[in-house]
């Protein structure tokens, strides 16, 4: 078994601040708050329209939603591996992992785009009914966050390739990675709530 001594970890001490810039964590909390309100609004709207929500949920493409869960979690894993490699002064390896994360994130956008195209093709829009108003606005709000996350990952990939990050400077890559994980985290709640729970 390969063994990497953890000589470069800057955060291995007791009771430390989260990885990356503290500002990104306040930003993440604000984003989570917004999504939390959105999730609660969906759940309580469902409580008043159970039959409609259960019926409309059957028209969603659940395999596509599950595939997108796999893609986002795998992207998150790639990004975590990229950060870890960069922390060990292997930034070329780190950049390749980040590229893997970008590919999976791109896969998510393609799958979601195909899903949207099918729904719009069927004449569904925001005013179709309460369920679809929530489905479209909630998933599109998340979609925009995936796009922003992708832009951040592409910048991080480029910088990591240039050797900007390493054991001595992890702030930028850790901050961007934390944002990406937040996008994954939100989908982990969104998928069961909107696609599966009935």
């Amino acid at each position: 078994m390969e063994h990497h001594p953890d000589i470069t970890a800057p955060h291995s001490g007791p009771a430390v601040a989260p990885p990356g810039d503290l500002a990104i964590w306040f930003f993440i909390l604000a984003e989570l708050l917004a999504f939390g309100v959105f999730f609660a609004a969906y759940a309580f709207a469902r409580a008043h329209n159970v039959e409609l929500f259960n019926e409309m949920q059957q028209t969603l493409d659940r395999p596509a939603g599950a595939l997108n869960t796999v893609l986002l979690i795998t992207a998150s894993w790639c990004v975590a591996r990229g950060v870890e490699a960069t922390r060990r002064a292997r930034s070329a390896t780190g950049a390749r992992w980040l590229a893997g994360g970008i590919l999976c994130g791109g896969g998510f956008l393609v799958v979601k785009g195909v899903e949207y195209a099918a729904k719009f093709g069927a004449g569904i829009n925001l005013s179709t009914n309460t369920f679809y108003m929530f489905y479209l606005s909630l998933t599109f709000f998340h979609f925009m966050h995936v796009i922003l996350g992708m832009i951040i990952l592409i910048v991080l990939w480029w910088q990591t390739r240039q050797g900007v990050y390493g054991p001595a400077d992890m702030n930028g890559i850790e901050s961007g990675a934390a944002y990406w994980h937040m996008v994954d985290l939100v989908w982990i709640v969104l998928f069961p709530l909107v696609y599966v729970m009935r």
């Binding site: 989260p18 975590a80 994980h181």
Partner: peptide, 14 residues
């Protein structure tokens, strides 16, 4: 798991 291991919050201030 995403918070503790991917985001690296394990061992961070409670």
């Amino acid at each position: 798991l995403v918070m503790l291991d991917f985001m690296g919050l394990r061992g961070v201030k409670f």
